[in-house]
Amino acid sequence: MTERPLPLVLRPLDAIGRGAIAVVEALGRFGMFLAEALGTLLTPPFKFWAFIDRINYIGYRSLLIILLTGGFTGMVLGLQVYFTLVRFGSEAYLGPAVALSLIRELGPVLAALMVTGRAGSALTAEIGIMRITEQIDALTVMALNPVRYLVAPSILAGLVTFPLMTAIFDTVGIFGGYLVGVELLGLSQGTYFGEMQTFVDLNDIMMGFWKSLSFGVLVTWVCTYKGFHVGHGAEGVAKATTDAVVLSSVLILVWDYFMGTVLP
């Protein structure tokens, strides 16, 4: 069957159509991938130990970087916000300013970005290498679903670890702000924590919680997908890893804005 060449005027339309279909197909594959992973979470057998290993992989191994970045983020906030507030004579509000920035925005976003760089890239590389060395095919021909063994435990672990890591980030950050505001700049401890307790309410904490929960799914979803659909050879793995980190980071920020407009 030979195709007749398309008239010249229709060629741009043809290109646009092809492009649009390719995008929709890619999104469809991306969505089906998550759907399949969630499907395997609902049906036995459950890979409990794989899930625990993933918490270790994503969570525990990122702990140090979370502590470091959380602490310094809080300290920087403490310093910068203090010098802004002092111009309005309202440095008493340093506590709530630091806490609200961390809890509503910076904690979930920065923790997610850090974990993406630390564990997300490793996740993509690991699964990508399993793909190019045919380990994923080996699972498939053993009549075992690789999604159940590799993807679903990672996504579930993301769901559990991201809120915890965000909470750690926030807490460490608040104490980082305390260190600068109270110990260094001489604010009173009571003012710092007291005003914080007055202004932060459960809605703020829930907002951060929902954000981190969704980032947990987002990052593990993107990173496992990119690893699973890796190209050829070491170059393919390298590209997939970069793609996964870039796409995760962009989606985190886009989704963060979206959540910010939807949530109270």
Partner: peptide, 11 residues
């Protein structure tokens, strides 16, 4: 049973 090219053992 399948024996893959590189062995495909789980690292």
């Amino acid at each position: 049973g399948v024996v893959f090219q590189g062995g495909a053992l789980f690292d």
